[in-house]
Design a protein around this nucleic acid. Structure first.
Length: 352
DNA sequence: TAACCGTGGTT
DNA sequence: TAACCAAGGTT
């Protein structure tokens, strides 16, 4: 079967089985002339980087309700955007989201550029996202290659070389299938197929529109592709977090540095995270160790945090951090690790 | 180039 | 339960 016929079969499947997503214009509406809002396409693509659709849904709804267009987002307060992103992870995305919105306003008059190269020059937009926005929002015949597409292509052409080394080969093969007509729907169809049929562990080949032309299925090795180089084991680090509560209920928090882990997010003052962390209380007080530890796993290490709590007098003067009044403190504004620390500390502070 | 950067669901 | 995995980008 020719490449064009494979693409056509995929679009027929997509017309019937496309997922309904808050940021998507479905195939019927698309063919009727509707186009998605580039702002919503961009926002969804940033949120979806290494993140599942289920996790993104509510964040997308809250962001678009609060900041309906790129001009509004560009004018937003940094802390409010970081708080709204809290829990979604990879916080550099949120910092770059603001940089990008402000660049679109300052350098492009508040409208997203339509070419892949101009999109690629914006903060937080890399090879995948630039192609996705160009194809989905602007109908450019850009080839979109994400983890789904890599998997679909590796199986379709039975590519046995391991990722990430095989990525250039997979991209070249994916480019052969990119149609001049409906490139955006083609990209979304490839990703929907990978997410719902051509899944990592046990692909539903019986339901796949490309099964008749899939070389991995013919060879009986679909579930074994794509091959990947094994990942390194995660080391375990330890640390101490300090939760101080003033008489009036105010809590001592500090804004983390822009760069690095949880950069730009609110957190509890604490030690370094290492094999043997040095204690680093933010002020002299009667610190009590909480009865439970906090365990959390990041991308490249496990973390075990000891939680220390203290009650402070009204005139306490900490060396680090700022007091946040009880009325305005929301655990949901914290990254998940810090939320876990709060849960443990609250139990300890209330368990008199 | 390879390390860094979150989190929650699935297996 | 531990490993795997998800619409990657930056340095």
């Amino acid at each position: 079967m020719r490449d064009e016929e494979i693409s056509a079969a995929l679009l027929v499947w997509y017309d019937r089985h496309a997922r309904v997503l808050p940021w998507r214009v479905g195939p019927e509406d698309r063919k009727a002339g509707l186009r998605p809002d580039p702002y919503r396409v961009w926002l969804s693509e940033i949120m979806l980087q290494q993140t599942t659709v289920a996790a993104v849904r509510d964040y997308f709804r809250r962001f678009t309700a609060r900041w309906p267009d790129v001009v509004a987002l560009a004018a937003a307060d940094d802390g409010e955007v970081m708080a709204e992103w809290a829990g979604l992870g990879y916080y550099a995305r949120a910092r770059n989201l603001l940089k990008c919105a402000r660049a679109v306003v300052a350098e492009h008059g508040g409208r997203f550029p339509e070419s892949r190269d101009e999109l690629l020059a914006l903060p937080g937009i890399g090879p995948y996202t630039s192609a996705a926005i160009a194809a989905i929002a602007f109908d450019e015949p850009a080839t979109v290659v994400d983890g789904n597409v890599e998997r679909v292509i590796a199986r379709l052409f039975a590519v046995e070389a391991a990722l990430p080394g095989a990525k250039p080969d997979l991209s070249a093969l994916a480019a052969r299938l990119t149609p001049r007509d409906r490139p955006g729907d083609h990209a979304q169809a490839m990703m929907d197929l990978g997410a719902t049929i051509c899944t990592p562990k046990t692909p539903a080949c019986a339901l796949c529109p490309l099964r008749p032309v899939c070389r991995a299925h013919a060879a009986g090795i679909a579930a074994n592709l794509p091959r990947k180089v094994p990942k390194k084991a995660k080391p375990t680090r330890r640390g101490v977090a300090y939760v101080a509560r003033r008489e009036d209920g105010a809590l001592l928090l500090e804004r983390r540095p822009e760069r690095g882990l949880l950069g730009g997010m609110l957190g509890w003052p604490g030690s370094d995270w290492s094999e043997e962390p040095a204690p680093a209380p933010p002020l002299d007080a009667c610190w009590t160790e909480a009865p439970a530890e906090v365990r959390h796993t990041f991308t490249h290490f496990h973390l075990v945090l000891t939680v220390m709590t203290a009650r402070l007098p009204a005139d306490a003067a900490p060396e680090r951090g700022n007091f946040h009044p009880r009325a305005s403190f929301r655990p949901a504004d914290l990254p998940t690790l810090m939320r876990k620390v709060h849960d443990v500390a609250r139990s300890a502070l209330e368990a008199d």
